[in-house]
Computed example of a mutant assay.
Amino acid sequence: MIIRIIGEGQYRAPEALCEELNKIDNRIVVLVSQGKAQEFRQELARLISEIKEKGESVSAEEILESDIIVPPEDLSLEEAKEVFTGSGIFED
């Protein structure tokens, strides 16, 4: 799976990592729906960190379509309410 972090580039993520990211994504959906801004930001930072640490960076010369687009770490709670709804950005 190819994941793009807005403003940071693309990463290849193996299936096992995607399962882990989906769990974080599901927590973010709950936190956003509860209006817990601080906890949401912590989990979004964790999501991005996991992608960067465990995914494989795609070179800028390689042009690939992204399967998932992750918003930047500075996303506001109001903006997150538009992004993290239903099953979130990772489909179950």
Rank of each mutant, 00 (worst) to 15 (best):
M1D: 10
I2S: 02
I3D: 00
I3L: 10
I3E: 01
R4D: 10
I5F: 07
I6W: 08
G7K: 06
G7W: 06
G7D: 10
E8A: 12
G9S: 13
Q10N: 12
Y11W: 15
Y11A: 05
P14G: 03
P14M: 05
E15W: 09
E15Y: 11
E15G: 01
E15R: 11
E15V: 11
A16I: 14
C18N: 15
E19A: 13
E19N: 13
E19S: 11
E20W: 04
E20M: 09
L21Q: 04
K23A: 14
K23G: 05
D25F: 01
D25I: 02
D25L: 02
N26Y: 03
N26T: 09
N26H: 08
R27N: 15
R27D: 15
I28A: 01
I28T: 04
V30K: 08
V30M: 05
V30D: 08
L31R: 01
V32C: 06
V32S: 02
S33E: 14
G35T: 04
K36A: 10
K36W: 04
A37I: 05
A37Q: 13
E39L: 09
E39K: 08
E39A: 11
F40P: 00
R41P: 01
L44I: 06
L44N: 03
L44P: 02
A45D: 13
A45H: 09
R46L: 13
L47F: 03
L47P: 00
L47V: 02
I48D: 00
K52Y: 04
G55N: 07
E56N: 08
E56K: 12
S57I: 14
S57F: 14
S57W: 10
V58L: 03
E61F: 13
E62H: 09
I63N: 13
E65P: 05
E65R: 11
S66G: 08
S66D: 15
D67M: 07
D67A: 11
D67T: 08
D67R: 00
I68V: 15
I69W: 00
P71F: 08
E73F: 07
D74R: 05
L75W: 03
L75P: 05
S76V: 09
L77N: 11
L77H: 09
E78Y: 07
E78D: 15
E78T: 13
E79M: 12
A80F: 07
V83P: 10
F84W: 07
T85H: 08
T85S: 10
T85G: 01
G86I: 08
G86C: 09
S87E: 15
S87N: 12
G88Y: 07
G88C: 11
I89P: 02
F90C: 03
E91C: 11
D92I: 03
D92F: 06
D92L: 07
